[in-house]
């Protein structure tokens, strides 16, 4: 078992860069993102016994991350500590000097949660529709409509930004 656990830990470490990237697409700021990754890693290890090889580890962990983030947002709502999206959006580009990247990250930060996650999984992480729908626990039709609306909104926000 301990060898299996070690392998599992290694695989998680290999996935860390992608976990961090997905966390940034959904949290809107790098600090929250790394906190979310940590919670995700800890939860994944606690669920080690539930991990089955059928799904790809990344999908499984993205699902854990999504749930952890939903919990987090709920906790914030409960404490009236919700960030205003616009305000949070200013945080996003902190780690890059690329103006395009900043514009895109800010635009993405302004999308509703569910669209942001769909776009993060499919367009950024490159998951298939089927995998992404499983991570989000929605039918494929729901996923594709979130993707479509998210893309439209993004395109509109980017145009607005160029003006």
């Amino acid at each position: 078992m301990s060898r299996a656990v070690d392998l599992f830990r290694d695989e998680i470490i290999e996935l860390l860069p992608r976990l961090r990237r997905f966390a940034r697409t959904i949290t809107r700021n790098p600090h929250d993102a790394d906190d979310l990754v940590q919670v995700t890693v800890e939860r994944a290890l606690l669920k080690f016994g539930q991990w089955k090889d059928e799904a790809r580890l990344e999908s499984w962990m993205f699902g854990i991350m999504r749930n952890a983030w939903i919990d987090e947002v709920r906790a914030r709502v409960r404490r009236d500590r919700v960030f205003a999206p616009a305000e949070a959006g200013e945080n996003v580009g902190a780690h890059t000097s690329d103006q395009d990247a900043i514009a895109l990250q800010s635009a993405l930060a302004r999308l509703p949660e569910e669209q942001r996650m769909a776009i993060g999984l499919v367009l950024v992480e490159g998951l298939s529709y089927k995998e992404a729908a499983e991570v989000l626990d929605v039918p494929i039709g729901t996923l594709t409509s979130r993707l479509a609306r998210g893309r439209e909104a993004l395109a509109a926000l980017l145009l607005e930004g160029e003006r």
């Binding site: 656990v5 470490i13 961090r20 940590q38 606690l46 780690h95 690329d98």
Partner: peptide
């Protein structure tokens, strides 16, 4: 564009506390 907007993070050095969490956090089997 989206991909490249978030690509930077892939090349950043991993924060040590995340690697430590993956190495050491308790496991339930």
């Amino acid at each position: 564009k989206l991909r490249s907007a978030f690509d930077d993070v892939l090349n950043e050095a991993l924060p040590e506390h995340l690697v430590a969490a993956a190495r050491n956090a308790p496991v339930a089997s």
